[in-house]
């Protein structure tokens, strides 16, 4: 706290922050609360139970959707994050940086339903073209290339997540000095070795954050996924479909709560470890003598 700051103003700021966090978290906490009610959502009587959690594994629709979502998240992360990393590396050396940023962030400014339907139309047309080419060549090999499927959903989600990954990586890359790569090259390292030994360890936090962010975005995304997924369901499409049609099942509340628990635990652990590490490093630095002057 600033020593000249009014203590009441300081308390007011903390209260405000707490209210904002609670406002954001109450719906999640409410879902967690319901997930432990034996009588489910909207019941007058609240009876604590863990039964719904036990029944998650028996809900095939939910487990299937979760499996698809996890697969999609892994595949999108494996493709999108390296692409974003390459884009960020190119951005650092590009002459016209504004143009590069515009190109990479453009998908963010197109509303999801428009981008999703544009991709849907494109894939349908591409599919028709490939089938026509296949017919001309007398083969059915190309018939399913651009049919709505896991691949089309993956492409849609890559386009959606790359801008976020790009920005996250670029922030950590901003602190990196290119002289270090040149120094590594001057020591005999080739381009890849210089990147892997010198640059990557310094931007690793950004790359891992981009991975985490991408997984979360894939879990969150509904519009593009539902338009491009073809014959499978993701966790979000199942939940929304249940909400719009029959209402969420008790297992769905349990699964939502479980995912929220895991997400909060993972993010919380990262923050905690970062804080502890920063404090440890600060303590080590305080314990060491000042750099000796030459």
């Amino acid at each position: 706290m600033n020593e000249y700051e009014n203590p009441w103003l300081h308390r007011l700021k903390w209260t405000y922050l707490l209210i904002v966090v609670l406002t954001l978290m109450i719906p999640v906490l409410y879902v967690m609360y319901i997930s432990f009610n034996a009588n489910g959502f909207g019941a007058n009587e609240y009876v604590f139970t863990l039964e719904w959690y036990g029944l998650i594994l028996s809900d095939e629709i939910l487990i299937g959707a979760l499996r698809w979502t996890m697969t999609l998240a892994v595949v999108v992360t494996v493709i999108a994050v390296p692409m974003a990393l390459l884009a960020a590396k190119y951005y650092k050396t590009a002459d016209n940086k504004l143009f590069v940023v515009f190109l990479l962030l453009a998908p963010l400014f197109v509303p999801p339903d428009i981008l999703g339907s544009a991709l849907l139309v494109s894939f349908k047309n591409l599919n028709a073209v490939f089938i026509w080419v296949g017919n001309g060549l007398g083969t059915s090999m190309f018939d399913s290339w651009f049919r709505l499927s896991f691949m089309t959903a993956t492409i849609g989600l890559i386009i959606y997540t790359i801008p976020y990954s790009f920005v996250v990586i670029l922030i950590t890359m901003g602190r990196y000095r290119n002289e270090q790569t040149e120094a590594a090259r001057a020591c005999g390292a080739n381009g890849w070795r210089a990147f892997w030994d010198i640059e990557f360890p310094q931007i690793r936090a950004g790359v891992f954050s981009a991975c985490a962010f991408t997984v979360i975005l894939v879990f969150n995304e509904y519009t593009r996924t539902s338009l491009l997924k073809g014959g499978f369901d993701t966790f979000t499409t199942v939940l929304i479909s249940q909400m719009l049609n029959t209402g969420m099942s008790a297992q769905s509340y349990a699964m939502s709560a479980l995912i929220s628990f895991v997400a909060i635990a993972v993010i919380g652990s990262i923050i905690l470890i970062t804080l502890i590490r920063a404090e440890t490093l600060a303590r080590i630095a305080r314990g060491k003598p000042e750099p000796a002057t030459s």
């Binding site: 002289e179 270090q180 120094a183 020591c187």
Partner: peptide, 11 residues
């Protein structure tokens, strides 16, 4: 090999 003006040590 090369010695740079600054910032070239691997931190």
């Amino acid at each position: 090999t090369m010695v740079f003006q600054a910032y070239a040590l691997f931190p």
